[in-house]
């Protein structure tokens, strides 16, 4: 057992013969925003799917709040998948209400208060009666986020949450994510953009299913030995090191 929000121990996962997650170990402290940064195919989505219990590890384990991610602790987890994953025939508020219901918000009055609250958070009050099919991509992302947080989970997994958002909305999302971590929520955010990475309190650089570096953005930049280094430089530095290590082995 561990006090960390998430503990990943020697985690492994394969799709057929292909190793997607390779002997991965990491710990994520409660109340932090933790970024999983890596190129396409680095294993970010698979790692999140393992963390929320959608996939069964081939080796090692994941502990969320000290327990394996099973149904008994699902109320503590919020999950925003890469696809908007919404019911296109239903309205914004009907989608959020449904996820509120299945996460056990039984009291109708309180649930609707919460539904209305998250609709305002994602700035869709005017569109609350609109069917999902009639919304833009960015609006769907906002509804998807609202569905993930309606039950106020302590652990929130966001798989590429800012993809397809315009810059203004991206800033709005990050302001809200910062508020969530300040309120004690733990956020695990996958991304392949350095804009997103810079907002995270801690980062893991992933490559080919392995963690090649972990730390705060400042620590990762400093590790390059170059005071002027950007996060992008730091990422390339660690990737190159990993490639060299791989070639030597």
């Amino acid at each position: 057992m561990t006090d960390a929000a998430i503990a990943v121990n020697n985690l492994a996962f394969k799709y057929g013969a292909l190793k997607v997650i390779d002997d991965m170990t990491m710990e994520i402290e409660s109340g932090t925003s933790y970024g999983l940064l890596g190129p396409n195919g680095a294993g970010k989505t698979t790692l999140i799917r393992l963390m929320v219990g959608l996939l069964k590890p081939a080796g090692g384990n994941v502990l969320c709040l000290g327990k394996p991610p099973t149904r008994s602790m699902a109320k503590n987890i919020g999950y925003m998948p890469q696809l908007p994953a919404l019911y296109s025939e239903l309205s914004v508020e009907q989608n959020i209400d449904f996820f509120g219901r299945i996460y056990g918000l039984k009291d109708s009055k309180k649930r609707w208060e919460r539904v209305n609250e998250v609709i305002k958070v994602v700035d869709l009050w005017e569109k609350r009666k609109t069917q999902i099919v009639n919304l833009s991509g960015g609006m769907k992302q906002r509804v998807s986020l609202a569905c993930a947080i309606v039950h106020q989970p302590s652990l929130i997994f966001l798989d590429e949450p800012t993809v397809g958002l315009d810059p203004e909305l991206r800033v709005h999302f990050w302001d809200y994510f910062t508020d969530l971590t300040k309120a004690g929520h733990t956020l695990i955010i996958s991304s392949h953009t350095f804009d997103d990475a810079a907002h995270c309190q801690r980062l893991a650089f992933l490559r080919l299913g392995r963690v090649v570096a972990q730390g705060t953005p400042a620590e990762l930049r400093a590790a390059t030995g170059n005071k002027e280094a950007s996060l992008e430089d730091a990422f390339l530095y660690f990737i190159k090191h990993d490639e060299v290590k791989e070639n030597v082995q």
Binding site: G53, L54, R71, A74, K75, Y79, F99, I102, G104
Partner: peptide
């Protein structure tokens, strides 16, 4: 997938 992550 979203429902499978939930408590139901």
């Amino acid at each position: 997938e979203r429902m499978l992550v939930s408590p139901i």
